[in-house]
Computed example of a mutant assay.
Amino acid sequence: MNRVLYIPLRLACDLGSIASRMVNAIVFNGSTAQTLSARAYLEGRDSRFWFRMGKIINAVFRVFQEYHIRWAWEQEVERARYVLQRLEGMR
Rank of each mutant, 00 (worst) to 15 (best):
N2T: 10
R3F: 12
R3K: 11
R3G: 05
V4M: 07
Y6V: 07
Y6E: 12
Y6S: 12
Y6L: 14
I7G: 04
P8R: 10
P8L: 08
L9D: 08
L11Q: 14
C13N: 11
D14C: 04
D14Q: 07
S17G: 15
S17D: 14
I18G: 01
V23I: 14
F28T: 08
F28I: 08
G30H: 04
G30M: 04
T32P: 05
A33C: 02
Q34K: 10
L36Q: 04
L36T: 01
L36K: 01
L36W: 01
S37G: 12
S37I: 01
A38V: 02
R39Y: 02
A40R: 00
Y41F: 07
L42E: 07
E43M: 03
E43G: 00
R45V: 06
R48M: 09
R48D: 12
F49I: 03
W50P: 01
W50D: 02
R52L: 14
R52G: 10
R52E: 11
M53L: 13
M53G: 04
K55E: 15
I56E: 09
N58C: 02
V60W: 09
V60T: 09
V60Q: 07
V60M: 09
F61V: 06
F61G: 03
R62L: 05
F64M: 05
F64T: 03
F64P: 00
F64H: 03
F64A: 10
Q65F: 06
Q65N: 04
I69F: 01
R70S: 00
A72F: 02
A72C: 04
W73M: 13
W73K: 13
W73F: 15
E74D: 13
Q75D: 07
Q75P: 02
Q75I: 04
E76A: 05
V77Q: 13
E78G: 07
R81N: 13
Y82D: 12
Q85L: 15
L87D: 14
L87M: 14
E88M: 08
M90W: 13
M90N: 12
R91C: 04
